[in-house]
Design a binder for these strands. Sequence first.
DNA 1: GTACCATACTAACATAAGTTATTGAATGCG
DNA 2: CGCATTCAATAACTTATGTTAGTATGGTAC
Lengths: 225, 225
Amino acid sequence: MLNRAAAQRVRTFAPRTDIAREGEKPKDVHLILNGWACRYKQLEDGRRQIVSFFLPGDICDLNIFILREMDHSIGTITPVSIADLSREFFDEISTGYPRVATAFWWETLVNAAIQREWTMNLGQRTASERMAHLLCELFFRLRLAGLAEDNSCSFPLTQADLAEATGLSKVHVNRTLQELRANNLIVLKGKMLVLPDLERLMSAGLFNANYLHLDREGRQLDANE
Amino acid sequence: MLNRAAAQRVRTFAPRTDIAREGEKPKDVHLILNGWACRYKQLEDGRRQIVSFFLPGDICDLNIFILREMDHSIGTITPVSIADLSREFFDEISTGYPRVATAFWWETLVNAAIQREWTMNLGQRTASERMAHLLCELFFRLRLAGLAEDNSCSFPLTQADLAEATGLSKVHVNRTLQELRANNLIVLKGKMLVLPDLERLMSAGLFNANYLHLDREGRQLDANE
DNA sequence: GTACCATACTAACATAAGTTATTGAATGCG
DNA sequence: CGCATTCAATAACTTATGTTAGTATGGTAC
């Protein structure tokens, strides 16, 4: 499946550019092959909120073409390459391969669960809990994608990105990271994140991985499918 | 379709009770026939966040049974009656009626869009913007469901509910509502909400209805389908 | 009607987080 | 290599929102 996907149109984007913009008619489903991207929304006065991150292997909004226009934008963090999956390709795959269709639903439901957890994160957690939680989530997801070492991962987000994702100011993000550092919960330097004690970071962020549904009953695809 | 749904098992719940709980195995899809409910998440220390509201006609988490366990709870606000749609009923419907399947996708995508907007709401909007935005959203959705008059609707949420949905304290919710009242943006008394000037409330909340996708290209069901 | 409970409201005070501004350290570019 | 730009760090100060605690109001059960 993934091979066939890769055989579709592949495009690459520079860092800090838009893959799709709010207001556009959504045409394809995007599969992230490489790099980090994010979904964000913007208010008229410029306030910006990152509402989710895309890591390699993630699919943006299945069946999005059912909607008339995009209600958010998708932008890159690092250089990114994506495969565009057309509506036709997509329909064909999902009717022809029921297990693939199930896997698509799984992806959709997990994305929704992540979005709910973000709502919780912004609504209830304090700044440092919120930051710890976000770092845990990204680390777990990277690990699942095979992109993390034992206790570290590459980490291309700037403090400004973290501010837009957590709803905090840049200054407060800095303060919060200092605090996590002072407690030996993170080592973050030069696009590299080390988590010396994941357990403690998880409890600092009141992080419970259940919402990521890592068991993935419906996620039985292998690369040849 | 809706008739057949109603022919499934129907249950009623008292106000302020749980329909489903975090940790349970999700068995059915729930269709709200009557009343208001909400989805919420809770931290170990008791902090609670309402992550979405369900109004009559809403469906909770299509295909949720693909996941192994619930990552959130569903509770009632008012008395509620629901139809439980079994996995089998659901599969049968969606394979037999492609337009229904499309409508299901539409529902799923709009719910995701609403969840993203909530993330934006909590992350970027001030208390009064946030409150104004939430009131606009509920009013638009009620109107779509045929449950609003010209500029008013029944409104069973307490200030405590609003606090849990907006991530504000109860006291600040009260202050915020006073402010909206003082600006003649709302009249809220005894379970009834009046919006004397929807346009102004919308701009106070930086509300743009695009994320609700009211055009609903994929939402062509009528009651007989 | 009285008692009770949930909800709404108010006030005084505490604090987490935002703002503005400056500096220093990396990083990339011509 | 030097310059420019982005990013990170810090400081001083402001403000939005939270906390605690109490009073008022309104519905409803007996």
